[in-house]
Design a protein around this nucleic acid. Structure first.
Lengths: 333, 333
DNA sequence: GTGAAAGCGCTAACAT
DNA sequence: ATGTTAGCGCTTTCAC
């Protein structure tokens, strides 16, 4: 019964006008009934609702958005949804958006500046309710420019402008905990695998350097080697690091992906993970606990991060949130 | 320079009218220049383009969509983007959509019928270009009803209606390969961990049963135990299966997540994975190769799946594609 | 409490 | 080659 028309059919949807006619009232009355706005006779209201149901009426989102000069769309900008870090964040964003009656449009930028701008422009062209996301290739000035035109919440980035909204994770504390853990395990010769992507993701590196200094480990700037934040990138970076500095027995990775890569590298180098070379990752991906061996890491609550991104966006009170992180000791350190 | 206005500002965007005025031409001329449509004097065109650039003009997607009675949105419906199976598909969908000038709106349904319908309705209300996705809780009749109103490509589902578009993976072949592999490894007492989610995902189960019959393993219907398609679900299901049928030495899991859960269960039961009980998963998640131990599985090319979903959608010629899968032997079987 | 008019920004169709 | 008219479906404003 729901199946009837074929491909070429594409019947027209009922409009508010149709509902009005069906209910024997004016357009406006229908609008009022549907959005239960101002005062309207309960009886009329009922009649309209029934007529709408009968016609299978669904409001046209674009017409509504056009009139209201604003849609119920929330843009979600990530560098790559296939990177296991983002899906959980995306789910948090989605659930919060859904709870707020919003739809989410997804953008993958691969951290490329042009595509980050394109995503922002697209969001603007949709008169979106707002945008949340990870911008690694766009300057803060440029972001501020967009923030002036559309509600924008930036994720995981230190901003100087106090009027901009952001939700980040406590990288400083997490990094410090990682270094402390490594030191406590007896590792004093540390090194770091840093991400080579993006102009604005140096918080983990600077925190690492600062923590090492505080722990009396000296200036380890030389021991930070960069690479793509992927498993392969981690393997390459770790290989480079351990080749150049064989004395290193403790590695702090930008994220779990690089951490996994480091595990591979250490094994390939004939060293025992943990015993000969400890590894601490960052993020705590779903998979990390089931790896061979289970990865010691700093947990970020990705789902909550996503939720807070949207909550902050909709709250509209400029604020900068910093979410707590937790060290999760497992087998690699 | 891009930074100027503050939160309250929200300056109005330039409209096509503004560009027309700026360029000293009519609205329509601007429209033509921007969409490089019909014949227009190259010189005028140039002038318009410059004016548009000067004003930072960006077309209003909703106004355009309203007029055209169709937007450039493609809906992507998944049960849970946080499930590691979907992100790669989503990326394929996104890349193909982006290449076709479309934006993608994401929907998470948790395989709940109401939410699958809600996603479809939302897509309709946006006059979307089309929808692609995984529908586990909606009847084919209902899907056909939507397909009559909006281009729809159904993923991983056997459809009877030849007019409906679908892109699936070759579960039959994959399952057969898995069973063959298990048999070849000397396992003749098999069991399966099936998903308990959704009304329409029994292809893996029926294929498994058929394959077992073909291999002379008898009717194993009793040995199919269901559970949520997650790691925990796999652990529970495997525990139940192995407790009820201790003679089972070969387990075929609905997906890698359940496979990982099975690995945990086997270990917890004091049995050696592979030697005492072999396990084959399905999907080949990114993580599966790095697990402890690496999981033997049937690979689905998730990215290509996503791409084909959109290609099929935009091609608009009703077709049903079945993508090839590959058995990836690793340590668990 | 309800209806009528106006207009959001755009493009298809029809002038010119 | 360019401008004008009309109208997509909705809500805001103002009548009644």
């Amino acid at each position: 019964m729901t199946s009837s028309g074929r491909q070429p059919a594409r019947p027209k949807r009922a409009t508010i006008e149709d509902v009005a006619r069906e209910a024997g009232v004016g357009r406006q009355t229908v609008s009022r009934a549907l959005n239960d706005q101002a005062e309207i006779a309960p009886e009329t209201r009922q009649r309209v609702l029934e007529a709408a149901a009968r016609l299978g009426y669904r409001p046209n989102a674009m017409a509504k958005g056009m009139r209201m000069q604003r849609s119920d769309v929330i843009g979600l900008v990530v560098s790559d949804i296939a990177n296991p870090f983002y899906p959980a964040v995306a789910r948090g964003v989605y659930d919060q958006a859904e709870a707020s009656g919003c739809s989410v449009v997804l953008y993958n930028t691969d951290a490329e500046p042009v595509r980050e701008r394109a995503a922002l422009e697209d969001v603007l062209s949709r008169s979106a309710r707002g945008v949340v996301g990870f911008f690694y290739g766009t300057s803060e000035a440029a972001l501020a420019g967009y923030a002036a035109v559309v509600p924008l919440v930036v994720a995981d980035r230190l901003l100087t402008d106090p009027d901009m909204m952001s939700v980040s994770n406590d990288f400083a504390a997490g990094t410090r905990a990682a270094v402390a853990h490594l030191v406590q395990r007896g590792h004093t010769e540390l090194g770091m695998l840093d991400s080579s992507v993006g102009v604005a993701v140096d918080e983990r590196r600077t925190s690492f350097l600062a923590a090492c200094r505080d722990f009396g480990l000296g200036d380890l700037s030389e021991r930070v080697v960069q690479g793509p934040p992927s498993i392969e990138g981690g393997t390459a970076a770790a290989t480079a690091l351990l080749s150049a500095y064989p004395q290193v027995t403790g590695v702090f990775a930008f994220n779990d992906l690089m951490g996994v890569g480091a595990v591979q590298a250490v094994a390939a180098l004939g060293r025992r993970v943990a015993a000969d070379c400890a590894i601490v990752g960052f993020d705590d991906l779903e998979m990390s606990a089931y790896l061979d061996p289970p990865l010691t890491t700093v947990r970020i609550d990705k789902y909550v991060h996503g939720q807070m991104l949207v909550k902050t966006l909709l709250a509209q009170e400029p604020q900068r949130l910093v979410l707590p992180v937790t060290l999760i000791p497992r087998a690699t350190a």
